[in-house]
Design a binder for these strands. Structure first.
Lengths: 225, 225
DNA sequence: CCGATGCTTCGGTCCTGCCCGAAACGTCCG
DNA sequence: CGGACGTTTCGGGCAGGACCGAAGCATCGG
């Protein structure tokens, strides 16, 4: 009928208060469970489940099954941009109350996303591994190549132990501040432990911030330059 | 209770098909009468009046009384940006309501997007400036480099005047026909004015189409080849 | 195996809000 | 002044969809 993209479908999806709260909670790029999202939206699990199915069906969210949990996250950087534009508009209209957002330079540089590294340092890892052919990246999944396995083992990471768990080894996780992927999954978690164990960086208590020491940053760059 | 801007209110406003059609029709920055908007939305004048009252009340539209007509236009560039972000997202998802056929060839070549150039010509500007190192593009924001400032000034654009406003100088806007970025923001608007003032191109009345003259196209290519 | 936990499906209720026709209001023009 | 036109208000019909409780699946821990 008319030219142009179907904007009403998307806006109607975002336009329900419960769904908008869910999306706002996910705007930092983390993945949350259906139950957590039900809580932030202030609705029953049953209602939340319906909303989440709609959002996933509308390609605003992606679903990751992990054990008996369902983790939902924003589907793409474009979704984040659209939400940000709406937030910005609401703020400009005086309905002010902006989220902290990763404006903070230190947070953008390196932070903890659940149990792995996010921010510029996070995508650095991802790019370094992918660029050297250590990660085979497909839209469906990410696998560690033979060369990658050798490299991780050389770093001192026990891949066998990681594989023992039910958790996928490699996961792409959307990085909110960089708008690109960083590495999650069991390997991502192991790399964060590695960085902390060697004293390359330290978590600040009560914050997601991850601060590298001078020598730690150098060692990190050597490993993932 | 709930933190963050009231994004649901805005999205719900945009989320009705009739209102979305109205807003889409206004995205080129023109002002249309209530009757014209009723027509593009495909609803009766009575229904349209109600929708327009809501949009104006929600500060998405501004109203100008002129004789017995009521002209409505988008309230601010921020509104246009939010709409563009939603359009870009929908386009990225492949949900064009009508695939741009040969008839829309002219629209895909060059059109007005609120107050700047979109379509192939819009992307051309962005690529040209970025390719020559005039724009510094990061995931978070876009800035005009020193070289870029010199180049724009040489073109006859008053950057100081543009900076006087609170509007961001450069803004990436996802182009729904090209599926890539074109340049919005205050500078994007200034470039459209430049193109029109020099007679390089002309807006067709009642359309978003932007038609270049033969010599105008040549001059444009020379400036943004 | 068992029960506990997390999530989804089902059935049913209720309310918001979209829609139109008719009539009222205001403005322009002859 | 009266009639035509553009727009808004009013009243009422109607559908979509948001919501919850309870029951049904799936998964984990023991």
């Amino acid at each position: 009928m008319k030219e142009g993209p179907d904007i009403a479908r998307l806006a109607a999806l975002i336009g329900d208060p419960a769904r908008a709260n869910m999306l706002s909670a996910l705007i930092d790029g983390r993945a949350l469970t259906a139950g957590e999202l039900a809580h932030v939206a202030g609705v029953s699990p049953a209602t939340a489940s319906g909303h989440l199915a709609k959002l996933a069906d509308g390609e605003l969210l992606t679903l990751r099954r992990q054990g008996r949990h369902r983790y939902f996250a924003l589907a793409s950087p474009e979704v984040a941009e659209a939400l940000e534009a709406l937030s910005g508009l609401a703020a400009a209209q005086g309905h002010l109350r902006l989220r902290p957002g990763p404006k903070d330079e230190a947070l953008r540089a390196a932070r903890v996303c659940y149990d792995h590294i996010a921010g510029a340092r996070g995508v650095q890892v991802f790019d370094s591994l992918a660029g050297r052919g250590f990660l085979a990246v497909t839209p469906a999944e990410i696998t560690l190549t033979e060369a990658g396995q050798a490299s991780m083992t050389a770093l001192g990471i026990d891949l066998a132990a990681l594989r023992a768990g039910r958790r996928p080894l490699c996961r792409a996780c959307l990085d909110w501040s960089e708008r690109r992927s960083h590495l999650g999954g069991a390997l991502g978690a192991a790399l964060l432990r590695h960085v902390e164990d060697r004293g390359w960086a330290r978590r600040e208590p009560g914050s997601r911030r991850l601060t590298f020491t001078r020598s730690g940053a150098a060692a990190f760059d050597a490993a993932f330059g």
